[in-house]
Design a protein around this nucleic acid. Structure first.
Length: 427
RNA sequence: GGAGAGAUGGCCGAGUGGUCGAAGGCGCUCCCCUGCUAAGGGAGUAUAGGCUCAAAAGGCUUAUCGAGGGUUCGAAUCCCUCUCUCUCCGCCA
């Protein structure tokens, strides 16, 4: 949610910055709503003040055992009017909130301008793609040859966009999550957390717009509960409705969860293999920080995610998303893309975003400035990123590590997590 | 699933219809005193918002005692619904 004060004080500026990311803010609609709010709120509060004052007098008279019936009648006479005004105020405030809740975040000034993926800017490229002296297979064929990647069985159980892993591949999948958690907790100072795989609609709205994106989520029938599309949903909401001490910041959490996405609107996209699934595992990094440190923390968190690829010796590049390609809540996003020889392309394996105060405002997550107990409360900044998507990391290892004999080399950093196994061979 | 108890400020806890945004304590901040440590004294200390003001300061004002509704001139306090927590019993991964 954007700062309402900012819309009031600099509507034109906000319209302009949102236009950069391809969003048209209906400014006239806002001004009408805001004018109505101002009038109704003022009127309502005046009447409430009057009622409160008169009621107080009634109390004083009654304490002295004097007659208060005239005052009581006077307040009673305006009861209907007050009630009507209060309902009007509720209504206009709800409309104003609904209006605000579907407006995306403002891009930082450092975000490259652009309309689509094509305008994203590569900020670095690490590791050289390997050259193969045999015909390169994609992960589906590599997995099939090993006998450990089974989409037929998954389809029988749950339909398309699910997978069954077996043997060494299942073990590697497990090993990857353990490895990532250990690196982030031991080397990057994150606290490991375990969290619910379902969140309330309120929490979903805290990190994104439920109204806009509910079709992307799986909902629990008959309840206000949604399967999480990422651990960002539960973990960022840890600080919902809280006032943190500045000494508690930054909070750094790492959380391994499955993620569930309906993938509505992506029909026909990435239908082969386990690139785009209804269910996948992810190790998520979440930071809650003071505003002045968020830009730096965002860079660090991105580097933390990249560390995993470095250790696994997987080639990747990092791109800064352009204004037109960023997600709803983000002020700035880096995507990390891993090299997939089977696709002859870099594919997203992590997305690291700084949301600034956008989510904090929706969640009422604040902190108290350092030193003084009377210090003003301020909204925290929230940052998160995948560190990394486990399924896609597995895909990357299968494709980059494939060997002529059909086996797959286990990266050295991962071998301790697989009992010293150096390669996965057919079952 | 059955029975009961509860939800108040950063924390503990008082408050069962009127001047209560809320006693008291703890904690915290600032100041004073005290030649270490310890102790003592004083002041301050919820959040969000609106109007006013060029702005800051200030002034006026509204809402919030788990959430939502109701009764009443007036609700932390009475009534209803919901959520959550705790205790006991049952069941159970």
């Amino acid at each position: 949610m954007l700062d309402l004060q900012l819309l009031r004080s600099d509507l034109d500026g906000v319209v302009k910055r949102l236009a950069d990311r391809g969003f048209t803010l209906p400014a006239a609609e806002f001004e009408v709503l805001e004018a109505e709010r101002k009038k109704v709120q003022t009127d309502t509060q005046e009447l409430q003040a009057r009622r409160n004052a008169l009621s107080k007098q009634v109390g004083q008279l009654k304490a002295k055992k004097e007659d208060a019936s005239a005052l009581m009648a006077e307040v009673g006479a305006q009861a209907d009017q007050l009630k009507a005004l209060e309902q009007q105020l509720d209504s206009v405030q709800k409309r104003l909130t609904d209006f605000l809740m579907v407006i995306p975040n403002l891009p930082q000034s450092s975000v490259p301008a652009g309309k689509s993926e094509a305008d994203n800017v590569e900020v670095r490229r690490v590791g050289a793609p390997r050259t193969f002296d045999f015909a390169v297979k994609d992960h589906v064929d590599v997995g099939a040859a090993l006998g450990g990647l089974d989409f037929d069985t998954a389809g029988k159980i749950a339909g398309a966009r699910f997978s069954v892993l077996k043997g060494g591949i299942a073990r590697m999948h497990r090993a990857l999550a353990q490895f990532m958690l250990d690196v982030h907790t031991q080397e990057h100072g994150y606290t490991e957390v375990y969290a619910p795989y379902m969140v309330s609609g309120e929490c979903a709205n805290g990190v994104s717009s439920l109204a806009k994106f509910k079709d992307d989520l799986f909902k629990v029938e008959g309840r206000d509960l949604y399967l999480i599309p990422t651990a960002e949903y539960p973990v960022t909401n840890f600080v919902r409705n809280q006032i943190l001490a500045s000494s508690e910041l930054p909070l750094k959490f790492v959380c391994h969860t499955p993620c569930f996405r309906s993938e509505a609107g992506s029909y026909g996209k990435d239908t082969r293999g386990m690139i785009r699934q209804h269910q996948f595992d992810k190790v998520e990094l979440v930071q809650i920080v003071a505003p002045e440190t968020s830009a730096e923390a965002h860079e660090q968190l991105t580097a933390h995610a990249e560390t995993i690829l470095n250790k696994l010796e997987l080639p990747f590049r990092t791109v800064a998303l352009c204004t037109g390609d960023m997600g709803f809540s983000s002020a700035k996003t880096y995507d990390i893309e891993v090299w997939l020889p089977g696709q002859n392309a870099y594919r997203e394996i992590s997305s690291c975003s700084n949301f600034e105060a956008f989510q904090a405002r929706r969640m009422h997550a604040r902190y108290r400035a350092a030193g003084t107990a009377q210090g003003k409360t301020e909204f925290v900044h929230t940052i998160n990123g995948s560190g990394l998507a486990v399924g896609r990391t597995l895909v990357a290892i299968l494709e980059n590590g494939q060997q002529a004999d059909g086996s797959v080399a286990v990266p050295a950093a991962l071998q301790p997590y697989m009992g010293g196994l150096q390669a996965i061979r057919p079952l």
